[in-house]
Design a protein around this nucleic acid. Structure first.
Length: 383
RNA sequence: GUGGCUGUAGCUCAGUUGGUUAGAGCCCUGGAUUGUGAUUCCAGUUGUCGGGGGUUCAAGUCCCCUCAGCCACC
């Protein structure tokens, strides 16, 4: 396991049905899959220090091109030798292209065939996102995995709209892939470019989207445009269509997902990588995830609960504090509550991935998935 | 003792020349949260409007009495 492999190498060690476990190698360490990647939009997994992130077991974290472009700026980061040098994070980094902001910030952007123009939400300045500028930006930020510019299509888009949208995404991806192939190490180390499938909830479009992407010979492929409001079964249906078409030997990344249940279902469909703000955001909003389900730790019912968030968890929060104390801190607006809950949630997500990897490796995946899904229904109350 | 001010939700207060089922913020309770514009958002509970009487079609609002707190002067 200590051998250094070429960045982009994806070794699948074991399978169970469509589920797989393996390792994706990057310029800054291996990513064990299935992997959950905590989100650090502005260069920080909110409220956590680098050692705290590492202690959760995360191999890789995310940054966001749109937000980092605004602050501190791409040239600034280039001068620092990339975000990793600036922030001190020395494991793998992935940057999202800003395509999600085409959806989440739809009120302050315009899309045309060449790209996306944002009006900064900070000062109104115009930012022009094209294949070229987004590749440059991500080279400046210096992530190990960079994402193609895409348009995150709304889940209710009709076929003509969704078609126009994914064709635009595909054309941007083609241009970006061409530029990237010319010099995959322009930043100084190998950066793996991932393309993103779109197509909304239309199976035919998704299938075409995945087939077209597969031809671009990129080191990884992502499924975007999910978890944007569609019903859960729809998400699984579309993810399944995609994983059936995507090449077997490339890592598959479902962007922006999700709940612990979502992760297990998608791993079962052959997905290898995930990212989601849920563990970090919900921690700050008073909710924690446990092996016995999620619950609001700010709720009155835990005011005197002496147990840790999760008796089965070895994170700093669970080793140090009771639910009662952490509720008190939350209710009192103490920052420590947010930090501890974030540490716990990210740690739990990593534990969930670790257990999934082991279950796939040792052949107990179906049983593990079934019993875990049952436990996750319990809302934090051990039986 | 005299004069004045103030009494409205658990807290701090708003209530227009009297006019529908008396409001806000905080607190409290519950819920949401899916490639972060999030210490965010949504919803809900709580009232003898200090008490009594009067005027009026109608009083938190006007009048009288009374109680409590505060201030000033004796």
């Amino acid at each position: 396991m200590n051998e250094t492999k070429t960045p982009g190498t994806f070794d699948i060690a074991a399978k169970s049905g469509r589920a797989r476990t393996g390792v994706l190698h990057t310029s800054h360490g291996p990513i064990r899959t299935p992997a959950f990647m905590p989100v650090g939009t502005a260069g920080s997994v909110k409220s956590l220090s680098n050692p705290e992130i590492e202690a959760t077991g995360a191999d890789v974290i995310l940054g966001n091109t749109y937000h980092l472009w605004l602050r501190p700026g791409c040239n600034f980061l280039r001068d620092w030798g990339g975000l990793r040098n600036f922030s001190g994070w020395n494991k793998a980094l992935l940057t999202d292209s800003g395509g999600f902001q085409a959806w989440s910030l739809s009120s302050i952007r315009k899309i045309d065939d060449e790209g996306i123009t944002f009006r900064s939400h900070l000062d109104g300045a115009k930012l022009r996102f094209t294949s070229e500028t987004v590749l440059d930006a991500q080279r400046a930020i210096g992530a190990d995995i960079i994402m193609a510019l895409d348009e995150c299509t709304p889940s209710d888009a009709d076929i003509p709209t969704a078609t126009r949208s994914w064709e635009r995404t595909l054309s941007w991806t083609r241009t970006m892939a061409e530029l990237w192939h010319k010099d995959p190490t322009a930043h100084g180390h190998a950066q793996l470019l991932f393309g993103i499938a779109q197509g909304s909830l239309h199976a035919g479009l998704r299938e075409r989207s995945c087939r077209e992407l597969a031809e671009l010979d990129l080191p990884g492929l992502a499924i975007g445009g999910l978890s944007v409001g569609e019903p859960e079964p729809e998400m699984y249906r579309i993810a399944s269509v995609c994983t059936e078409v995507l090449p077997e030997h490339k890592p598959r990344y479902v962007m922006g997902v999700g709940t612990p249940r979502n992760l297990l279902e998608l791993i079962d469909l052959g997905v290898d990588m995930f990212d989601c703000v849920m563990p970090t955001r919900n921690a700050r909003n008073g909710m924690v995830f446990t092996w016995n389900g999620a619950f609001h730790y700010k709720a009155a019912k835990v005011a005197k609960d002496p147990r840790p968030f999760d008796p089965d968890c070895q994170c700093l929060a669970c080793r140090s504090h009771s639910r009662a104390y952490l509720r008190h801190l939350f209710v009192s607006n103490e920052i420590l509550a947010l930090r501890m809950a974030t540490i716990h949630n990210v740690h739990f997500y990593q534990d969930l991935m670790d257990a999934s990897r082991r279950a796939i490796a040792n052949g107990t995946w179906p049983e593990f998935k079934r019993t875990t899904l049952e436990r996750l229904e319990r809302k934090g109350e051990p039986l």
